[in-house]
Design a protein around this nucleic acid. Structure first.
Length: 419
RNA sequence: GGGGGAAUGUCCCGAGUGGCAAAGGGGGGGGACUGUAAAUCCCCUGCUGUAAUGGCUUCGUAGGUUCGAGUCCUACUUCCCCCA
């Protein structure tokens, strides 16, 4: 992919900021993006009630597209989610009910409004749901209209299928059809919206190429595919997994404070890359930030955290998160941004033990785990490191908050408030 | 329809053929060193618990043999491979 000299603003930006892994017809796409409005889409399946940071690079691509004067389409996979994408999976996942899928779509939708401008204008973003067309096909009609264009020989060669077979993991016929459905999506959007480009993660390459070829073969129209590199951290971890599990984008599943923390904890070597991908800062400013020596790189991480949090949760939430972080980590004081867990005094009328507090704070799954943390020196109550499972009476509550400050490790702090 | 194999600590991979709470990895968690980073080193990783050579629950499911079963027997379930 050494398509060094792109002419279009869109592809130049995409290239410079590190979004491009593969493109199907780079030169042609470059011309299209330079001479007119390109309509492009990315599909998102509704497998959870929120998207997570793993989706963020895709969302940002749509944002870059719109910024460059083109038209983004968000495709909600209401129909494809019913089947389940087999890519990168060892086996069939439990199937979601229609109601679950509908629920997930409704809670996911809002995220896109933070990043894109929706409307009826020529470059306004649109949102569609592939259930609208996929669920209308009859089986025989679908096979006759689209099945004829796919050979099993070829489908078996795609990684998503091949890996399963090589690993001797079963792949059901249901999953096998996912690829066709995604190809039909692209064709449908090409016809109804003049969509010419599908983007996605590198694992979607096979699915995307199939759609491109379907359009070129059936409608003899230009169609393109573009994939992003697989995002991992510099030390090889899959991006987005942290102490608290997945990094959700919905505020009710991961607070702005925690979201800010996620970005603040970026590895040194990733700061520049993430600034380019996940903020709108100009490239020269990013170059300056990532060149900061030694511990000063922390300032770049704060900028990253501020910008990323602001884009998703708004300026107020971002500055509160930043101020909270300053209180907690730089001044060692309390912050209203810390999560609060309310517990009942009734069960323990006199006092709570350290282990009980840790468990109730949600920082340990069981009392045994909490005790191990204490034994390892990982627990502090009200900033006092605990080495034994002591009792804490309620007159030891922090006076201003009427709560215990429960800390596990360096970064996990919860206020436990008995009521 | 016939034959052969496989399911292990509910995150994953994977040893284990009568004494096993079950080797070893990975992942995860804690500590030390630092800069709320990485790398490195140490510890932990079934539940419960007066941290007891304690109790309880684990090796696909259900029974059986045995003082004792992940390990042996029977049936069943699911998956893989080969033959038809």
């Amino acid at each position: 992919m050494s398509d060094a000299a792109f002419q279009s603003e869109f592809l130049k930006t995409m290239q410079a900021r590190g979004y491009i892994h593969q493109i199907t017809h780079p030169a042609e796409l470059d011309v299209a993006a330079r001479t007119g409005v390109v309509t492009a889409y990315i599909g998102f399946d509704a497998t959870a009630s929120s998207l997570h940071v793993g989706h963020l690079i895709q969302i940002m691509m749509l944002r870059r597209l719109q910024q460059a004067g083109h038209k983004p389409i968000v495709l909600m996979g209401g129909g494809t989610t019913k089947v389940g994408d087999p890519t990168d999976k060892d086996g069939q996942r439990p199937l979601l009910t229609d109601a679950q899928i509908q629920g997930n779509i409704s809670t996911i939708k809002g995220t896109f409004q933070k990043f894109l401008t929706f409307g009826d204008g020529p470059t306004d973003a649109a949102m569609v749901n592939n259930d609208d067309w996929l669920s209308k096909f009859g089986y025989v009609q679908f096979l006759r209209d689209y099945g004829v264009h796919f050979t099993i020989n070829r489908m078996l060669a795609f990684d998503s299928v091949k890996n399963r077979l090589e690993r001797e993991q079963p792949m059901t016929f249901l999953e096998f059809n996912y690829m066709l459905m995604q190809s039909v999506d692209f064709l449908e959007l090409a016809r109804s919206h003049g969509c010419v480009l599908q983007m996605g993660g590198s694992d979607q390459w096979g699915n995307i190429v199939n759609g491109v070829e379907l359009i070129r073969r059936v409608d003899q129209k230009a169609a393109f595919g573009l994939t992003t590199p697989l995002l991992s951290t510099a030390s090889g971890q899959k991006m987005g997994k942290t102490v608290g599990g997945a990094v959700w984008l919905n505020a009710d599943m991961r607070s702005p404070y925690d979201y800010w923390q996620f970005w603040r904890n970026t590895e040194d070597a990733d700061v520049g890359r993430f600034l380019r991908l996940f903020t709108d800062l100009p490239l020269d400013e990013i170059a300056r930030l990532e060149a900061l020596p030694g511990a000063e790189i922390n300032d770049a991480k704060k900028v990253l955290a501020n910008e990323a949090t602001r884009m998703l949760h708004g300026a107020d939430a971002a500055s509160r998160a930043a101020a909270g972080a300053q209180d907690v980590f730089e001044r060692g004081t309390l912050s209203a941004e810390l999560p609060v867990v309310e517990v009942s005094k009734a069960e323990f009328p006199d006092a709570r033990t350290t282990a009980t507090l840790v468990k109730e704070a949600g920082l340990a799954a069981s009392l045994g785990e909490a005790r191990k943390l204490i034994a390892n020196g990982g627990v502090a109550i009200n900033d006092q490191r605990m080495t034994t499972d002591d009792k804490h009476t309620y007159d030891q509550l922090l006076p201003d908050l009427q709560a215990f400050k429960v800390q596990v490790g360096k970064k996990k702090i919860v206020l436990v408030k008995p009521t």
